[in-house]
Each structure stands twice: as C-alpha cells, then as structure tokens.
C-alpha cells in the first residue's frame, strides 16, 4: 500500500505502476458530467486543480444540525462519460490524480503519460467506505447551478483506498481485461 499525500508531484505520480494499491490523503475535488461539460464549453473554474485530485463522484451530502455539511455516501461514478473532456482538463489544469470507476479511453491514457497523471479506480458502489475517508467538506462550487449531486465539492480526505488502473507508462488494467474477455468470448460464441 502506497501513501499519496497532497500536493501530488509529477515525480510521485510517475513512480506509480498499474496495479499499485494506494491511499490518498489531502484535498480532493469532485467533478462529474456537468462540471466537465462546463469546462469544455469554456467555463472558468473558481479553484485550482494544479497538482490536485479530481474525483468523478456525485455524493449524498446533508447539512447537520449545526449547519455544517456532512458527507453520507461518496463512491465513484462511471468515468467513461468524461472521455471527451478529460485529456484537455488534465493538460490545462495540471490534474495529477483522476479518481473514478470503469477506466477511461486511450486519449486519456496518452494525456496521463504526457502530463504526468494517473487514473485511480475506487470501488464502485462502496459509498460508505469512501465517505468514511472524507474528514470534512472544505468548500463547494456550482452548488446552485449544478445541484448537490453534480456540484464540485472539495473534500478533505484521509487514506482513501484506490488502485492505480491507468499509469503514466501507457498501461491500463481495463485494456488488459477487455482483451482477455474478448478472446474468451470469441471462443464460446
């Protein structure tokens, strides 16, 4: 198990290999469908993602009795929907960790290699495990415009477990699985 602590440096990220199990600690920014489209349409970001972590996640968040945000459930959403937008976002914003589930396409894999970024897979549906790693909500952007599930939440996370699924060396665990399963399918159909 490797510890990844913010700020995430290019050197740290390039040292990771597909298959490595990691624990992520530090600020993590959520951003999913609306956020990516907003960025692709030329929208300005009111925060920096440089050397940061972008998490494909639409959490369940409630306000507690003291008026503070409490994260109840925060597992990853499917990342493929952001394929058209992610390479530009990685390149322009200096994102070092993209966290989600299901993996992303070859263009994103190339951007990871070029810019020094890795894709981490969190366990889909494991929302209570992920929420346990959220120590507090630091801030939120686009809450009014996008709604709670699509807003860009800034979580303070501690020891968030994930697996390096796409590294900076052009290796994707998903491509491997797709290749193996395609061969097996051809054999039985």
């Amino acid at each position: 198990m490797k510890n990844l602590v913010w700020p995430f440096t290019e050197k740290d990220v390039r040292a990771l290999r597909a298959g490595d199990a990691v624990l992520v600690s530090g600020p993590v920014r959520t951003g999913r469908d609306r956020f990516h489209k907003y960025f692709a349409d030329g929208g300005r970001l009111p925060f920096s993602l440089k050397d940061g972590a972008l998490y494909h996640c639409g959490p369940v968040v409630v306000k507690d009795a003291r008026g503070e945000w409490r994260v109840v459930a925060a597992g990853p959403t499917t990342s493929v929907r952001e394929n058209p937008y992610e390479p530009a976002l990685i390149e322009k914003c200096g994102v070092r960790l993209v966290i989600g589930k299901g993996g992303m396409d070859s263009a994103t894999l190339e951007a990871c290699a070029k810019c020094g970024c890795v894709y981490l897979q969190a366990v889909g549906g494991a929302a209570a495990v992920a929420a346990k790693s959220v120590k507090r909500v630091r801030s939120v952007a686009f809450l009014e415009e996008f709604g709670a599930a699509e807003a860009a939440w800034e979580f303070e996370m501690e020891d968030f477990p994930a697996v390096v699924a796409m590294d900076t060396h052009g290796v994707s665990l998903f491509e491997e699985t797709a290749r193996v399963s395609a061969a097996r399918l051809a054999a039985i159909c």
Binding site: V60, V72, A73, G75, T77, A127
Partner: peptide, 8 residues
C-alpha cells in the same frame, strides 16, 4: 443506516 451507494 446510510446509503450503500451514493447513486440511490
């Protein structure tokens, strides 16, 4: 007593 998955 919290959701199994955030996508309810």
């Amino acid at each position: 007593g919290t959701p199994l998955c955030q996508d309810t």
